[in-house]
């Protein structure tokens, strides 16, 4: 479960309005994602590459419950977000949507633009010749993340239950 890409650095308290601007919320994820972070980084959505990693400051994802915020990052191919802390609602949403979010105390010390690889299974990040350890994602959430998020996870679970029901006792 490893990727490689470059780092995009962001500051503290990046909010959901800047990740998924309200005026585009009536549209589908493609349109919302094309405006992701535009108030801060106008070129982000058009230049971010699949496998890139966001390295941010404290309380990433502050604000709304709109899950289009992590979904937009996922849609653009962002492989993971590292931050010393996340807004609780965003953290839950990100994992539910299958976007790896890793609590990384050292995130603010990591430089912009570096090539970077992230293994969310082990919480290991390699960037600029350094290795950083993140807090591990709790086991039951990791299982959900491996399935790609809550929806595919539930789908798998319900399918397994239905198979069991069909089998004669």
């Amino acid at each position: 479960m490893s990727n490689s890409g470059r780092i995009w650095k962001l500051g503290d308290n990046i909010d959901t309005d800047v990740l998924a601007p309200g005026r585009y919320m009536k549209f589908g994820i493609e349109e919302i994602a094309s405006h992701c972070l535009e108030a801060l980084l106008p070129d982000f959505a058009s230049t971010v590459q699949p496998g890139d990693v966001i390295v941010a400051g404290r309380n990433f994802g502050a604000g709304s419950s709109r899950e289009q915020a992590p979904q937009a990052l996922k849609h653009l191919g962002v492989a993971a977000v590292l931050a010393p802390s996340f807004a609780g609602l965003f953290y839950r949403n990100a994992l539910n949507l299958g976007l790896p979010v890793l609590v990384c105390e050292a995130a603010p010390t990591i430089a912009d633009n570096l090539p970077c690889s992230v293994d969310f299974e082990t919480g290991t990040v390699k960037a600029g010749g350094q290795t950083y350890r993140c807090e591990p994602i709790p086991g039951f959430l990791l299982a959900m993340l491996r399935d790609g998020g809550l929806l595919p996870h539930l789908e798998k679970k319900l399918a397994a239950e239905r198979t069991l029901e069909r089998k004669p006792a």
């Binding site: 899950e67 609602l89 839950r92 949403n93 998020g149 809550l150 929806l151 539930l154």
Partner: peptide, 14 residues
């Protein structure tokens, strides 16, 4: 009472 996203709400609703 606390806020959750739509996918998590799906989990609750099901």
């Amino acid at each position: 009472m606390f806020g959750i996203g739509a996918t998590e709400m799906l989990g609750v609703v099901v």
